[in-house]
Design a protein around this nucleic acid. Structure first.
Lengths: 161, 161
DNA sequence: AAAGATTGAAGATTCAATCTTA
DNA sequence: TAAGATTGAATCTTCAATCTTT
């Protein structure tokens, strides 16, 4: 019997291309961006993301727990990352007035300067790696797909198990 | 002056949504798939990918160097991963007749069985996490985008520096 | 008892250096 | 000299256990 929809390992080849492509493209782009930020500004991609996140907040600070979820690290993973960033003087811990268990990660002036210095590298790499290769329609579609995928996901953060 | 194209950190919000969505969706999907393979079959996602890659080869074996590139690991990273897989009896190293420097990673019978047992978990997770959320058109478009993105990338493998 | 955060121990990955063969 | 593969040291991340506060 003829196979009308060619399959490989239970997924059709076009399904496989969409999935494997996602893995490969992500690996490629994040490694390139990480390397560029590291060599040009001494920042790992995850570090940049934390600084960027804090920089976007009104008070330039955010609860540790929320940062962890936003950047996709475990609580302990974020503790260690903030340790490193604090050692470099880019971030500092501030105790939380309303809940003594909690702590804020707050961007320092040095951290803000480093963030701003690194932004162009970040923007250029994202443009060169992804944005330049997609049409406006495709761009909108990508965003829409991600929204559905992330929305549909059961929350995996430490908060909601 | 009015901002017609709202921006955040130099990228427009729609550009940012496409990029950040890629990061988030990848993190989400790969973590879920990894966890499912790990709990149900004792396989990390990377291990599954190596087994799957070998299983697709004619002789069920492939040069270490090529495996490393295909799964996006460094040479040393793959050396260690194959160490672990070999310890579990899923893969074995076979010396290369035509080039004594080289080695093959070869799927064992046990490895093949484990791979086949794990396939449904893999397929289900990819379907539930990604494929079910996209239309056929979008699926094709995703594959096309990945192709362009990966094609445009300067080769980052250990082979071509 | 539950939540936010940290710590110790262990795993996975990489870089630089090394070994063997081409 | 260069390429394939491995090793040692270091880094990043997580899990489980712990401490403090709610």
């Amino acid at each position: 019997m003829a196979t009308t929809t060619p399959r490989s390992e239970g997924l059709r080849v076009d399904e496989l291309a969409a999935w494997r492509g996602l893995l490969r493209a992500h690996a490629l782009l994040s490694k390139r961006l990480d390397a560029a930020l590291e060599t040009e500004h001494g920042l790992a991609l995850t570090s940049f993301e934390v600084l960027d996140l804090l920089g976007a907040e009104g008070e330039h600070r955010m609860r540790m727990c929320d940062v962890a979820v936003s950047v996709g690290l475990s609580r302990s993973g974020l503790t260690r990352l903030v340790d490193r960033l604090e050692r470099e003087g880019l971030v500092e811990r501030v105790s939380c007035p309303s809940d003594a268990r909690g702590a804020f990660a707050a961007l320092t002036a040095t951290g803000r300067a480093r963030l701003e210095a690194a932004r162009p590298t970040h923007v250029d790499a994202v443009r060169a790696g992804l944005l330049e290769h997609v049409t406006p329609d495709e761009l909108a579609l990508l965003a829409s797909v991600w929204e559905r995928v992330v929305e549909a996901a059961p929350c995996t953060s430490p908060r909601c198990d």
